[in-house]
């Protein structure tokens, strides 16, 4: 016989929690916290992705602001993102957790699967929904390829394939991702990942 206690769903924390996320994850995190009113989202500019050395300082300031706003529970929705552990140091100093993984595309992929992937995948350039949508603003323009397309092979000459990791099925994004592959002169592949480890990480906060 089971007790009433055992039949009850696990208790959800109602303590206010702020997620500090890369702007590139905004849509996905918002959809995951839709029915969790005690969780709020603050995004930092996604373009920090292109200068990762600035991420730890930006996250540090955002955590300090959260605490100043009276929010003790903070979660960082950034992978290491090329910060070489310096983002982890910031998180440790504040006693805050971040989502595991080296890159956003690795947690979409699933971090364990990402580590175990084929050696051929090192020649792969990954797009997420965000990067497919913002390919021009986050890849073409910052790399100067709009003005100097002749630089393309200096940046991408070693890549063989562009893999679009699909978070949400959308034919318009498929088309953008395919166009990106054509622009970079790379073979195109599409893999549906959904939200991968991001989903379990955010649900684990509830």
């Amino acid at each position: 016989m089971t007790t009433n206690m055992e039949q009850r769903p696990p208790e959800q924390s109602t303590e206010k929690l702020r997620i500090i996320a890369c702007g590139a994850l905004a849509r996905e995190v918002l959809s995951l916290i839709e029915n969790l009113p005690h969780i709020e989202l603050t995004c930092l500019p996604a373009i920090l992705h292109n200068s990762p050395e600035k991420i730890p300082d930006a996250v540090d300031k955002a955590i300090i602001k959260a605490r100043h706003d009276g929010i003790e529970r903070v979660y960082v929705a950034y992978a290491d993102c090329g910060t070489s552990g310096t983002l982890d140091k910031v998180c440790e100093e504040h006693g805050v957790e971040r989502i595991a993984g080296p890159h956003c595309f690795s947690f979409y992929f699933g971090n364990d699967d990402f580590i175990a992937r084929d050696e051929d995948d090192i020649y792969t350039f990954f797009l997420t929904d965000f990067l497919a949508r913002q390919f021009r603003a986050f890849v073409i323009e910052p790399l100067g390829l709009d003005k100097h397309p002749e630089l393309r092979d200096m940046y991408f000459g070693s890549y063989k394939k562009l893999v679009y990791l699909v978070q949400n099925e959308d034919p318009a994004l498929d088309q953008m991702a395919e166009e990106a592959a054509r622009f970079l002169d790379l073979e195109y592949e599409r893999r549906v990942t959904g939200y991968g480890d991001l989903s379990s990480a955010i649900k684990g906060l509830a």
């Binding site: 790399l143 100067g144 390829l145 003005k147 100097h148 002749e150 630089l151 200096m154």
Partner: peptide, 11 residues
């Protein structure tokens, strides 16, 4: 200068 300009110079 940024990476694109440096690459053009390098070229």
């Amino acid at each position: 200068l940024f990476v694109p300009e440096v690459l053009l110079s390098a070229n």
